[in-house]
Design a protein around this nucleic acid. Structure first.
Lengths: 193, 193
DNA sequence: AATTTTAATTGATTTAGATCAATAGCATTT
DNA sequence: AAATGCTATTGATCTAAATCAATTAAAATT
């Protein structure tokens, strides 16, 4: 149940055996079936979720009913609406399982208690945030500078696991393209090969 | 010299008088005149910069010579190329002063030493990263969902200080628009008033 | 296996914003 | 105050991607 989590932690910091045991007590295991949600838009996000197995997405819905995917997350990654989670404000995102998934949930208070009791856990959280920050900067830069085709090719190279696992129209949504445009982009790429 | 920095820190965590004195010894003061750079694309970013006074931007240059502004930062904010800073890799961004500016610089090793000696400084860094992460998520969502006009109006509301202080074509660049488009968007908004 | 639902493709048309080009408005420098 | 270099505006045209619409393909459900 905790394999992926401790693998993720140990890649970044060193915990003692006792700290790892203590750590376990703060998480709430949770299974989600495909299409079930961890968070509904408008609700307050009370969990920071680590994914042991499966894949989830977070997305917004605009006035016209179009979904915009803000994040995908697979095994070994964390997902939450950080803004809602940290400030107890209504969430603008919905978080949904795209496959049957197994999660380890951390409430705000459990997260803070863990960081107070295990300083290396706070470091782990900071290192995760640093990586997420870098990834988001790269995504902003991509949105500002790349064509539809470049966006798709770069995503497929950087995260082949996600592109293979997720319906194509969701990849389009993540890239800020329509499904039709992504279909044509892919056709173009194949024609050239 | 350290007013803004300690104001920023104290908004997030509590340091003792001794910790604050210790803290000061790790920073390198630096003045930049308008148009001078803190970092050139291709160089390794060895500083994390806190801005006591002034305003800076980080940007990339594409093959056609177009600049794309990734970040603005004013008094009380931090700026760096986090990816280059943390991994000692060549920077893809240039960081430049838009006005005469006063900075406090932290090298990688100084930052790590500070975090080891003052746990609350690590917490401060984590809290900064959390806010930056939330802001970047919002910006990604904006790029995916908003029209040119919405992007401009929302930026002007969220950061009036920056929009007033920076040339219009740089605001356009930050929003992923051409200067011509932003000029027309502004005209439209004014015509309606 | 048949039916319903959901996803992807293809074509025709539209549109938001980009590009190209010229002009006008400011600041700075001489 | 003339000249130089930025900055913003305005108009004409172009284009990448969106939208609308229909068809085909693949999953999921009965």
């Amino acid at each position: 149940m905790f394999q992926q989590l401790f693998k993720s932690i140990q890649e970044k910091v060193l915990l003692t055996q006792e700290e790892m045991e203590l750590c376990k007590t703060f998480f709430i295991p949770k299974k989600l079936r495909k299409k079930q949600t961890l968070l509904q838009e408008g609700d307050i996000c009370i969990y920071n979720a680590f994914i042991e197995k499966g894949i989830l997405r977070s997305f917004t819905m605009d006035e016209k009913g179009n979904e915009h995917i803000v994040q995908f997350a697979i095994e070994g990654w964390w997902i939450t609406d950080l803004s809602s989670f940290l400030t107890n404000s209504a969430s603008v995102y919905t978080i949904e399982a795209l496959e049957d998934s197994e999660l380890l949930l951390l409430t705000t208070s459990a997260r803070e208690a863990l960081m107070d009791k295990i300083p290396m856990f706070e470091r782990y959280q900071r290192l995760l945030l640093q990586n997420a920050y870098i990834a988001n900067q790269a995504r902003i830069n991509s949105a500002l500078t790349e064509t539809a085709e470049e966006k798709y090719i770069n995503l497929a190279n950087a995260y082949p696991g996600i592109v293979k696992r997720v319906p194509q129209h969701m990849i389009a949504s993540y890239l800020g393209l329509t499904p039709e445009t992504l279909s044509r982009v892919r056709k173009q790429i194949n024609n050239r090969k």
